[in-house]
């Protein structure tokens, strides 16, 4: 479906937030779901594939969604050139999102741009009268984005950076070690090794864990089987069986 660019804001030298007028997506989206974005107009076939981007923020009332992306290649470079009023073709919302767990303290863990789906999640948790703790890990302080948005939702935010330039020095797992309690419901998104480490901590603490996985995709709707994730029962499809899984469902080291 065609959506219209409202804003395309440069947040750091590589990270952008794309705000789209997309009332249908905004009405249907659940936190943790993604949209499959075409980076070129419908007449062009290069770059060929769509880009799966998780829904960073969503307002049903205004009919808008926001996407967070990092410029890494041809597709995201083209996205970074979009201007207000331009049209963007997307499929979605797609995939299985987060399950909001009642009566447990929500802890949101984001590594790098894994932070993207957690703002929309925090918003819905606040609507459900829960107050999330948000743990953010980045390489450098200059990579840290969106923490003001979490603060605006009255979330408690803690930051770790590998070079110590913002927050505490270390990985997001260092923060998680300090914060996790057995009654927590943890929602995590980030690189696979980080998720594996968080899964170990949650097992130790007895906390419930959902992870949002990133994988290169083809169709994004479950037909082509390229976004495979190993599970005890064979490969799952990240696009339709996920991208959010309960930690026990997937093999995070595979």
């Amino acid at each position: 479906m065609l959506t219209t660019v409202r804003k395309n804001t440069m947040l750091t030298d590589r990270i952008y937030r794309l705000t789209l007028s997309a009332p249908q997506v905004a009405a249907d989206a659940q936190p943790g779901q993604f949209v499959h974005v075409r980076t070129v107009p419908p007449t062009s076939w290069d770059p060929f594939l769509r880009r799966p981007l998780s829904i960073h923020d969503c307002s049903r009332e205004e009919g808008i969604i926001a996407l967070l992306y990092e410029v890494v290649g041809r597709g995201t470079t083209l996205l970074s050139r979009l201007r207000p009023g331009d049209e963007v073709d997307l499929l979605g919302p797609l995939g299985r999102g987060f399950t909001l767990v009642p009566d447990r303290r929500p802890v949101l863990v984001g590594g790098g741009l894994g932070l993207a789906p957690l703002l929309f999640l925090a918003r819905r948790l606040r609507e459900a009268r829960q107050r999330p703790v948000v743990l953010v890990g980045c390489r450098r302080g200059s990579d840290v984005v969106a923490i003001d948005d979490f603060a605006a939702l009255d979330c408690k935010v803690e930051v770790a950076t590998e070079d110590g330039s913002l927050g505490c020095k270390g990985m997001v797992t260092t923060l998680a070690e300090k914060h996790l309690e057995c009654e927590d419901a943890v929602y995590a998104c980030g690189p696979r090794p980080m998720l594996a480490a968080i899964a170990g901590l949650c097992r130790g603490a007895g906390a419930l864990l959902q992870v949002s996985l990133e994988e290169k995709m083809g169709c994004g709707i479950g037909a082509c089987l390229v976004c495979a994730c190993p599970t005890p029962k064979g490969y799952a499809r990240v696009c339709t069986d996920g991208p959010v899984f309960w930690a026990e469902e997937v093999d995070l080291r595979g």
């Binding site: 770059p47 060929f48 594939l49 597709g75 994988e215 290169k216 995709m217 083809g218 089987l225 390229v226 976004c227 495979a228 994730c229 190993p230 490969y235 595979g254």
Partner: peptide, 8 residues
């Protein structure tokens, strides 16, 4: 085993 796709 994944990755199973790369854009060209």
């Amino acid at each position: 085993r994944p990755p199973r796709i790369v854009e060209t």
